[in-house]
């Protein structure tokens, strides 16, 4: 049995100074960004009902922590992070529930719904769906939101280098899959 002692590597930062609540600011954000965030969650999850729930929870989280958010101009990246995290939670829960009761959610890119998208786009979604979770997220943030690597890294909670390599691997994997599907 090996044994080693390590020291702390990460200590929590001090809390930001309190700011006055600004509910009107949140309402403005909600009206301006709700649709975009629901679309982001929709692309990650595949069904609109759950996507709307995730986004609603993200706004609720921001509302609760409004006083503690140091930079209110940076709320949108924070909201995106909340949405991506919420989608991860849903995926994990679905994975567990799916083993027990089967996946009852039919995603918008399913064969039944292909008429809405066309077969070519459906192929792309099916290939994206088969990628690991982190690669899927990186692709959606990069090619749907057109975020730069720095912002993708912030939303996903990884380094810029990781984003770069993740997107690169995902594209290579997609290219192989789509080529094989032809």
């Amino acid at each position: 049995m090996r044994s080693e002692t390590r020291r702390a590597t990460d200590v929590a930062p001090p809390s930001p100074p309190p700011l006055a609540p600004d509910p009107d600011g949140i309402a403005e954000l909600f009206h301006a960004h709700r649709l975009g965030l629901v679309r982001l969650a929709f692309l990650l999850l595949g069904d609109q009902e759950t996507a709307e729930d995730v986004v609603q929870d993200a706004f609720a989280a921001v509302h609760r922590r409004w006083d503690r958010l140091a930079d209110h101009g940076r709320v949108l990246p924070y909201l995106r992070t909340c949405v991506v995290n919420g989608c991860r939670m849903v995926h994990r829960r679905r994975a567990i529930a799916g083993r027990l009761i089967g996946d009852r959610v039919e995603p918008f890119w399913s064969a039944e719904a292909a008429a809405l998208l066309g077969e070519t786009r459906r192929e792309v979604f099916v290939a994206v769906r088969a990628l690991p979770r982190r690669q899927r997220e990186a692709l959606v943030l990069r090619y749907y939101l057109d975020l730069p690597e720095g912002e993708i890294a912030e939303v996903m909670g990884v380094s810029r280098g990781t984003v770069k390599s993740t997107v690169s691997r995902a594209l290579a994997s997609l290219a192989t899959k789509l080529e094989a599907a032809r």
Binding site: I26, F42, L116, L117, G118, Y144
Partner: peptide, 25 residues
Amino acid sequence: RLRDAFAAGADLVTPGSLRAEPSPV
């Protein structure tokens, strides 16, 4: 192809298809 597919997929969520707005604040 990714940009096109993501844009088309996202467009399936239209403003009119969202549920009635809740009151976050």
